[in-house]
Design a protein around this nucleic acid. Structure first.
Lengths: 229, 229
DNA sequence: TCAAAAGTGTTGAGCGTACACCCATGC
DNA sequence: GCATGGGTGTACGCTCAACACTTTTGA
């Protein structure tokens, strides 16, 4: 079966830059292509948008199919449409970036490690197509957005310590932060709920666990509040 | 002549939200459609992306063809890909927003006023497709971006008074600003070049004209500076 | 001389930043 | 008891916001 049009049409794809946070590093999920072009090279997960699915649905489907990731934070990044970005034909790609709680998903990546793996963001292999450009834009966006939107919590488990949160910011922004000032600011916003639990199995004083108060955040935003850290 | 593919392909369009600044108001350029669907309704300028042109080229070409605008500031906004956004078939649209110096372009809009016209952003007619959504996202983006990037100058003539600049900010942000604080901040950044000219033909004391120092701004950005107002 | 907008400084409050020590826990 | 990170308060400087009058020019 074929489909015929009066004018030539380019193909449309989605590509996803998936970020996860290791203990010590910000990571990105890459897959190893097993079809030409760029066979054997690493690339961002992604693929063709089907004609009866929305862009975001396509991104989620591809993530699911290629990496096993599901129900992640996903936001549109930019659309790449240079003529020669794919050697085969004209392909326009809508890029998304995703944030995942790596601890939840570590297993998937490991079991399927032959063709999907996490790389430190400073330690990526050379990428197929213009994926290096997409990746670097995503990283820049993440750094900017982290400062004025509470998206960092998407990278942490539901319950986390203030130190974990601080390390997240230090790792992504690549600069040290003062502990007392950080805690003052973050607690001062009133968006963290103190749980009655503490860390387990640590060889020192156990830290208190907090949750992000999503409901309260939404309410405050409607009232004109804007997060900043 | 026809073009045949193995899988069905959606169409790809660009749409442009063009902003201009009147003396008193922020305006948006709309065109009146003279083909179905939505014949006779107002819509954003835009059209199909050709297979051998980049997305930005397509946006510039459509702007030129439909509104006569040329060499404007243009930046990608977002890509809209819901399945039913076009009643005919699947159409994905890459939206751009543009900023123009309205004084330079007022003539074009006027001479071609049957099918292209400026509307106050609070006084727009109902729009075809999902263009109302695109427009409102563009407006939101403009308001945010104005605060931390020097894009406002794109809406003013090359040489402008500090009052014009302040009014621009007041109109777009929709709140009054203190004159002395505004001048202090904006001059304090050192990005305005004082010319030796003043306003002409005003019925009161003529204000000094300034230019934005684009070269210096670029240099500062490379050194880590970030504009904020 | 009047109208209309240009231009100009100071002060107080609140915020961000820098900084060091004791505490709790597990080994 | 010691190593490891958890948790806490203060003081200073700077930036931001509030605020009113004089000057220039053309009509």
């Amino acid at each position: 079966m074929t489909f015929t049009y009066e004018y030539p049409r380019g193909a449309l794809t989605v590509d996803c830059v998936v970020f996860g946070l290791d203990e010590e590093e910000l990571k990105v999920m890459l897959i190893q292509r097993d079809l030409p072009p760029f066979e054997g090279q690493w690339a961002l997960p992604g693929g063709f948008v089907q004609v009866e699915e929305s862009l975001e649905d396509a991104a989620r489907r591809e993530l699911q199919e290629e990496t096993g990731l599901d129900r992640v934070f996903l936001e549109q990044l930019y659309t790449f449409g240079n003529i020669d970005r794919d050697p085969r034909e004209r392909v326009v790609s809508v890029a998304y970036y995703a944030l995942v709680k790596l601890s939840n998903h570590r297993v998937h990546a490991a079991t399927d490690a032959r063709d999907a793996a996490w790389f430190g963001v400073h330690d990526t292999p050379s990428l197929a197509f213009d994926h290096a450009k997409i990746f670097s834009l995503a990283l820049e966006r993440l750094r900017n957005k982290l400062r004025y939107q509470p998206i960092g919590f998407e990278l942490l488990p539901k319950k986390f310590t203030l130190s974990q949160l601080q390390h997240l910011y230090e790792i992504v922004l690549e600069r040290p932060l003062d502990k007392r000032n950080f805690r003052k600011r973050v607690l001062g916003m009133g968006l963290l709920i103190e749980t009655d639990e503490v860390e387990q199995d640590v060889a020192h004083r156990a830290a208190r666990l907090y949750r992000f108060d999503e409901r309260k955040y939404r309410r405050l935003v409607k009232a004109g509040f804007h997060f900043e850290l």
